[in-house]
Design a protein around this nucleic acid. Structure first.
Length: 583
DNA sequence: GCCGTTTTCGGCCCGACTGTTTTCAGTCG
């Protein structure tokens, strides 16, 4: 029996919560299950080990009852309570939760009054008028359900940051241009630079709320209007993403910005901190309660708000309730890396393998971006599908780079590298005597994705033990929203990276963003160096570095944790450090 | 069901919008 994963356990807890909702259980009990599911999703420890050693209670949000259920799931692969609960409901019922505007109460009525238990049955019941006739429903509700069914099939509901960034930034800059708009920002998970976002939240401070809302819902990017009120409007953009607009008064802006930036977990702690001071915090104000011993200070921006709660300013990327409050209290928050700190980058392709820009074009684009160096790492020979380089072509590329470098007289440099395939057994696609000729080597997996976690981990660690392997490319191989990463013991890989002096890549391609931001604090703690690489296959992809910076910031990294912040004069020694320590 | 610097009992974030209702329930974030 395959070991049950953390995500599967979280899904089970979510399902329990949904079933309890339909049953009309105590809302706080339901919340306890969803809280526990969320807590598991962000837990980075080994869940099976924690269960075996009775340490599940250490996870905030997991108490005695849920710990017992997780333990049973880990030990037997299933949960009696869950199976019995599931038997009370028709299986198709849960798909209905995915429909916007439909919640547990309405689902229960549809089931009990009309015996509707699947989305197709629901569609039929709406079309023949049975839903509209239900008490508490009506024609509009019926039509909205049909609209939600259509939207669900058309849009998966989750979007990579990279796919919607242009649309989001266009909207916010146009909002800023409107008369009477004082401030406008994209809040939400976009501002926190999550790798995948579900919707966009725009916050606007204005004295003309009606005009701003009107502009928003009538914008040419808007496909349909979901809601249009005095202070809140929701639309769906043509790309499929839902976008919400909140219009507030200037004085309310810092509170709205903070509230709608989240995360939900971060907000809960903020509110609680206000409450312990006798104040109440919401999206409009920080105000004294009746029993307050003092009045809150005036707040004009977000840093004021944090200061009022005795905290250093917490950058949006860190607002995930993963330790930022303790650090903000102790004045130990990191000085996060910024895009301007980058001096070069390493994992880039050219037309020699599967890139679409030439070596010269890539070098020119890097200089235009203000970078001092660019590493070229085309695929190795085994990556036939990517036109990987044979030995001769690699040596020719090295010679070509030498010629280009001679023309830069020291102010810019191209480093010679290769993205070498890691074979199934952990050996590399090029022999050491060839790798020796390169300034650096990126080792990556592009085949045999289905090895067991133990085999995959062993394979990667063996590759890192090669003294020529400077950095490990895309650690899990995940493709966001389309392919899960291969099974790999990330903490063991981090340990091995520290032991061998191998850097770990933060692949900044918005489809990857791998290694995941949740692991970087651990890598940093172990002393593993991060290298942010765009995995560029075109000159325009160098812009991906910006997404990588967002993830590095979410991972608490500073400029000193990221090697490609080093200037040209210092980077060479770092690239050769691992080889040097073997000699 | 979880949790504890007022608590082992009694809290648990709360405001906006929609639709159906005629003062509010359901849903969402």
């Amino acid at each position: 029996m395959a070991q049950i994963t953390k995500d599967q356990i979280a899904d089970t807890l979510e399902s329990i919560a949904q079933m309890l909702e339909i049953k009309g259980e105590n809302v706080f009990k339901i919340r306890a299950y969803t809280n526990a599911a969320r807590a598991l999703e962000t837990y980075t420890g080994n869940i099976a080990a924690a269960a075996g050693e009775g340490r599940l209670g250490e996870i905030a949000g997991v108490g005695k009852a849920i710990a017992e259920k997780i333990t049973e799931l880990v030990a037997t692969g299933q949960l009696d309570y869950f199976e019995k609960l599931k038997a009370e409901f028709p299986p198709g019922l849960f798909e209905m939760f995915e429909l916007q505007g439909l919640g547990p109460k309405k689902i229960k009525v549809l089931w009990e009054a009309l015996n509707v238990t699947t989305v197709p049955e629901l569609e039929k019941a709406c079309k023949d008028g049975r839903v509209a006739d239900l008490p508490g429903f009506g024609k509009k509700t019926s039509d909205n359900i049909l609209g939600a069914i259509e939207a669900r099939t058309k849009f998966a509901g989750r979007f990579r940051l990279g796919s919607i960034a242009a649309e989001a930034e266009r909207m916010v800059s146009e909002l800023r241009e409107l008369p009477d708009v004082f401030r406008a920002t994209i809040a939400g998970s976009f501002r926190r630079r999550k790798e995948v976002v579900g919707d966009l939240d725009f916050i606007v401070a204005t004295n003309s709320p009606a005009e701003v809302s009107e502009f928003f819902v009538k914008h040419e990017m808007v496909e349909s209007v979901i809601a249009h009120g005095a202070t809140k409007s929701s639309v769906r953009f043509k790309s499929g993403i839902q976008a919400d607009l909140r219009v507030v008064k200037s004085a309310e802006y810092p509170f709205a910005l903070n509230y709608f930036t989240g995360s939900k977990e971060h907000n809960i702690v903020m509110r609680q901190r206000a409450l312990t001071r006798g104040w109440t915090l919401n999206e409009y104000r920080l105000a004294a309660l009746d029993n307050a011993r003092s009045t809150p200070p005036p707040i004009t921006d977000e840093p004021d708000l944090y200061r009022a709660l005795d905290l250093d300013f917490v950058e949006p990327e860190l607002r995930e309730d993963r330790g930022e409050f303790a650090a903000a209290e102790a004045h130990t928050l990191p000085d996060l890396i910024e895009t301007e700190n980058l001096r070069g980058t390493f994992h880039n392709h050219t037309t020699a393998s599967d890139g679409r820009s030439t070596l010269a074009e890539m070098a020119e684009a890097a200089q235009e971006l203000g970078l001092q160096y660019l590493g070229i790492a085309d695929h190795s020979k085994s990556s036939v599908q990517a036109h990987g380089l044979e030995t001769d072509r690699l040596l020719a590329q090295i010679a070509e780079i030498k010629v280009l470098n001679a023309n830069y007289d020291g102010h810019f440099r191209i480093f010679t590298g290769s993205e070498v395939d890691i074979h199934k057994d952990g050996s590399l696609d090029f022999p050491d005597h060839l790798l020796e000729h390169l300034d650096y080597v990126v080792a990556s997996i592009h085949s045999s994705f289905t090895l067991s976690e133990a085999e995959m981990t062993k394979r990667i660690i063996r590759a890192m033990e090669n003294p020529h392997v400077t950095m490990l490319g895309h650690v899990t191989g995940r493709l966001l929203l389309s392919r899960d990463g291969y099974a790999v013991d990330v903490p063991a890989v981090i340990e091995a990276a520290a032991a061998t002096g191998t850097m770990i890549e933060l692949n900044a391609n918005p489809k990857r963003l791998d290694m995941d931001w949740r692991w970087w604090p651990r890598a940093k703690e172990k002393g593993v160096a991060c290298v942010i690489n765009p995995d560029a296959h075109h000159t325009s992809h160098l812009q991906f570095l910006h997404f990588g910076i967002g993830i590095a910031r979410k991972g608490w990294l500073t400029r000193t944790d990221v090697v490609n912040c080093l200037p040209l004069g210092q980077i060479e020694a770092v690239l050769s450090a691992k080889r040097a320590r073997r000699k």
